[in-house]
């Protein structure tokens, strides 16, 4: 069982701006949490602070009760994996080396890559559908393949906690669904925790077990997908330009809400399909 907590976290950007303004969050094993928010709402700073890459002005991030900022870097990297936004990778590095870099926190200075670790790396590649591509160089990969390779690296880090910043932003709809499926399975398997910053509401609707909506660094809505994905909960993200419906999702294996960014001129007075309107406090 892993427990991940964020307590009254504040992250400053310069002297005047608060990127994250008093966020509280408590997640336990098996949670796939989506942090939704418009551009500039503070998703990336929140994730970076959670990963221990950015110093908090106040508040704390805790893994199993230990303060992340006080962990030694390797120890932290054995518990938290962080995948940055974007697809920038060194062009001449092989896919295998890219994924193998995740083993760094697990290796001693003179320790070579063990056979088991190599097998783990190949397993991670197989999981993301890049089996047999390990000798290819990064410049030979498509955007979708780079994203999968980066995901394989995050998996190969073998951490109980996985933080991903916009992992699907550069992907086409089909690849987005595939990556979301991989994430859901990875988290469900060993009772891990995944936190995904995204503005893809529909992906969140299908795979998230928990959703947090950020607006100007504050949490404005949090809870299960059903409870958050409402007109009021999504207001910061869409304004009033949305149409909410419901449909069966193969990923969720049940009916889930879906959201269409669409200005139908109704200004929120009528909804095409009924849905629950209760807002989580």
């Amino acid at each position: 069982m892993t427990r991940f907590e964020v307590r009254d976290l504040v992250v400053d950007r310069g002297a005047t701006r608060r990127a994250v303004d008093g966020v509280d969050l408590a997640l336990c094993s098996g949670t796939l949490c989506f942090v939704l928010g418009a551009n500039g709402s503070g998703k990336s700073p929140l994730l970076r602070a959670m990963a221990g890459l950015e110093a908090a002005a106040s508040g704390a991030v805790l893994v199993d009760g230990e303060v992340v900022a006080r962990l030694d870097p390797r120890g932290r990297a054995r518990r938290i994996a962080w995948m940055p936004q974007g697809l920038e990778v060194p062009r001449r590095v092989s896919v295998f080396d890219l994924v193998a870099s995740a083993r760094y926190p697990h290796r001693g200075v003179f320790e070579r890559l063990t056979v088991e670790a190599a097998a783990d790396i190949r397993a991670a590649l197989r999981r993301v559908g890049l089996e047999g591509h390990d000798r290819r160089r990064c410049y030979e990969l498509s955007g979708g393949e780079v994203e999968r390779a980066l995901l394989a690296r995050a998996f190969a880090q073998e951490t109980p906690l996985l933080l991903l910043d916009e992992p699907t932003a550069a992907l086409d709809p089909r690849n987005r669904l595939a990556v979301a499926g991989l994430l859901r399975d990875w988290v469900a398997e060993d009772g891990r925790i995944g936190v995904v910053a995204s503005h893809d509401v529909n992906l969140a609707a299908q795979v998230a077990t928990h959703i947090v909506v950020l607006d100007r660094g504050r949490v404005v809505a949090a809870g299960s997908p059903e409870s958050v994905l409402t007109r009021a909960g999504l207001e910061p993200l869409f304004g009033s330009n949305m149409v909410i419906g419901r449909r069966f999702s193969a990923l969720a294996r049940e009916e889930r809400p879906f959201i269409l960014a669409w200005d139908d001129g109704s200004r929120g007075e009528a909804e095409s399909v009924p849905s629950r309107r209760d807002r989580t406090p």
């Binding site: 970076r48 990963a51 221990g52 890459l53 870097p73 390797r74 120890g75 932290r76 990297a77 054995r78 938290i80 994996a81 962080w82 940055p84 920038e88 990778v89 060194p90 590095v93 890219l98 870099s101 995740a102 760094y104 926190p105 880090q157």
Partner: peptide, 11 residues
């Protein structure tokens, strides 16, 4: 080579 932040995140 993967970026300074990635390197830090990897320990």
């Amino acid at each position: 080579a993967f970026g300074e932040d990635t390197a830090r995140a990897l320990g």
